[in-house]
């Protein structure tokens, strides 16, 4: 038989629920499509890391890859429409943006860049770790040097009077927080726990700025070569994993928030009224993005923002 071998490049810790869900998905696909396709995992960022993955897959340097959605925003700007900072009040609300017409728009945008979205995985909400204090109000952002990677997040932070800082590479961020080069960083509770953010920035303020997703993407040409039944199989089995990771994201967030607190960090939640203020300020930034990115972007905004 002509079994097609698909190289899948991944990264991240193997014991993470996202990695475990992915391993199950690979097994299920390989079993169900035995003789037709075989997915081989190259783990641990050996082939490509999150920064370069989307363009490696788009070029076809690897058949499939694990893509960090926020890292791909520059290449596929439409994805910002389902990742608007402070737009979604809960992970379930954010998950709705990945359905129906909204999903069709972003899938089409990705296909233009020769990427096929195959599986969506969820991670827990992005919060704020600070080495100064917990954030009680909008005023607490004033002058705060916040490590940032996202342009839209930076814009909102500037509007809040903070000083978003993109100058420090990821490997230096721990030291930067510890030595006071920076004051704060945005990270999820689970991500922060594993990167030890809470050791150097002991004030964790929950504010659910956004919910990052992780995709398994395939090169569009490779995808089009697959038999229809294999394509459907991959997507259907993928939906199961999406649901599993959505539940795991909630469970892990609760678990590791407790761990962080147990290890001596101060965990609070920003008052609802203050978060509403930030949301209001953010609206201008979303609107500007929609205006700059055409009517598809405006449609995404209309679909996803109440």
């Amino acid at each position: 038989a002509n079994e097609m071998v698909l190289k899948l490049a991944t990264w991240g810790p193997p014991k993470h629920y996202v990695a475990e869900a992915r391993a199950d998905w690979i097994n299920e696909v390989n079993t169900a499509a035995a003789g037709k396709v075989k997915i081989v995992d190259y783990p641990g960022g050996q082939l490509y890391g999150p920064k370069e993955m989307h363009s490696a897959v788009a070029k076809g340097s690897v058949d499939m890859g694990l893509v960090l959605q926020p890292a791909m925003l520059a290449m596929v700007p439409m994805l910002q429409g389902v990742y608007l900072p402070f737009a979604f009040d809960s992970i379930d609300e954010a998950a709705k943006a990945y359905t129906g017409e909204s999903l069709e728009i972003i899938e089409k945008a990705m296909e233009k860049k020769r990427l096929k979205l195959v599986v969506i995985s969820w991670t827990d909400g992005v919060q704020m770790f600070s080495n100064k204090k917990n954030i009680q109000s909008v005023d607490d952002f004033k002058g705060l040097r916040i490590l940032s990677t996202s342009p839209m997040f930076s814009e909102i932070m500037v509007k809040l009077g903070a000083a978003p800082d993109t100058s420090i590479p990821q490997t230096e961020q721990y030291m930067a927080l510890q030595r006071g080069v920076s004051d704060a960083m945005a990270n999820s509770a689970v991500g922060g726990y594993f990167q030890k953010s809470h050791e150097v920035a002991k004030y964790l303020t929950k504010m659910d700025m956004s919910y990052a997703t992780i995709f398994i993407c395939m090169n569009l040409n490779t995808w089009n070569k697959l038999p229809k039944d294999v394509q459907d199989l991959m997507v259907d089995l993928g939906k199961k994993q999406t649901a599993i990771t959505l539940a795991a994201a909630k469970g892990w967030e609760a678990k590791f928030t407790a761990e962080i607190e147990k290890e001596g960090a101060s965990v609070t939640r920003i008052p609802d009224a203050e978060r509403a203020k930030i949301k209001n300020i953010s609206k201008e930034v979303w609107a500007k993005w929609a205006k700059d990115n055409g009517k598809e972007a405006q449609r995404l905004l209309d679909l996803n923002i109440k």
Binding site: I168, P169, E172, M175, A176, R179, G180, V181
Partner: peptide, 10 residues
Amino acid sequence: GIYLGIFTAS
């Protein structure tokens, strides 16, 4: 400078 948090190692 590195120790006092004025600049990073790089």
